[in-house]
């Protein structure tokens, strides 16, 4: 049976940027984007797209991608389209800026209501910037649908999804009625690359843009105004450690010297 699917994708600063380039502006409590490193779709969200594409591959269906923010880069947010998603809806307005898990989940849930019919909503398990992992569960709660979080495999049959949920020492197989929301973890496996054909098709597609009024959002609940968690301080932890480099005339000798050094320091 073809599935109607929605995937929420967030544009974030590239988490693979070198840690040395990471800077916080203490005055504004914001991260300074590293120069020359373009933003990306949060990697877990790409894997959420992959989970939806695997279902589309096996039984057909439609994938609508939702992204929220302001001044979103088209090359970035169109990536799910070039991987094989069908439509892109952007919640794009300056009013969406500065939100937290609450205001983000609220806006996405209202957009999903406007889309109307759906069987599955996918999100990444957490976004690579704030790492909170709340928006998926929040959307499910606001929509009144069941959720299964931290999935590594999703299959659909007979109006139900069977999900493998990652737990500390293995996984659980969970059956959930549809419609449902599923958050996806990296154990699902790598997201596919965009094909040339996909990139060309994505270039031609125009995203639909929804302003807050288009999805009947209460202005007091959007972006920074709708925050329920107050950010008091954003800072970089101080690293005090000094590494003692152990050397040798050859790599093997350095290895042996390292063992001797660990014994000397009573580490082994």
């Amino acid at each position: 049976m073809p599935m109607n699917m929605i995937v929420c994708c967030k544009q974030v600063l590239d988490p693979e940027a070198p840690p040395a380039s990471f800077k916080v502006d203490p005055a504004s409590n914001q991260v300074v984007p590293p120069p020359g490193v373009p933003p990306v779709i949060s990697p877990f969200d790409e894997q959420a797209v992959e989970a939806a594409l695997r279902i589309k591959d096996s039984q057909g269906g439609k994938i609508t991608v939702l992204s929220l923010g302001n001044n979103l880069l088209r090359d970035v947010v169109k990536k799910p389209l070039s991987m094989g998603a069908d439509e892109l809806v952007l919640l794009e307005d300056e009013a969406y800026e500065g939100g937290d898990s609450w205001s983000t989940a609220y806006a996405l849930a209202m957009a999903i209501k406007k889309i109307g019919e759906f069987d599955l909503v996918f999100c990444g398990r957490q976004a690579a910037d704030w790492d909170a992992g709340q928006v998926g569960s929040g959307i499910a709660e606001l929509l009144g649908i069941p959720s299964v979080t931290v999935a590594r495999k999703v299959e659909v049959a007979d109006g139900k999804a069977t999900v493998e949920r990652v737990i500390a020492d293995g996984y659980q197989v969970i059956e959930v009625t549809l419609p449902a929301l599923i958050t996806v973890s990296n154990e699902l496996g790598e997201a596919r690359y965009a094909t040339l054909k996909g990139i060309m098709a994505a270039a031609k597609k125009q995203p639909t843009i929804w302003k807050p009024a288009d999805i009947e959002l209460d202005p007091s609940q959007i972006g920074a105004a709708g925050r329920r968690a107050k950010l008091l301080k954003l800072f970089q932890p101080v690293r005090e450690g000094k590494c003692e480099m152990v050397e040798g005339d050859s790599p093997a000798e350095a290895g042996a010297n390292l063992a001797a050094k660990l014994r000397e320091a009573k580490v082994i």
């Binding site: 050859s250 000798e253 390292l258 063992a259 050094k261 660990l262 320091a265």
Partner: peptide, 30 residues
Amino acid sequence: ANIFKEARFGVVGDWKQVLPAFTAKVKELL
């Protein structure tokens, strides 16, 4: 590599050459 910023002791080198000698020496010491 960023790991050296967190480490107390380090060796810069190809692990394939460093590790066997390290393991052998640890074995001997223990």
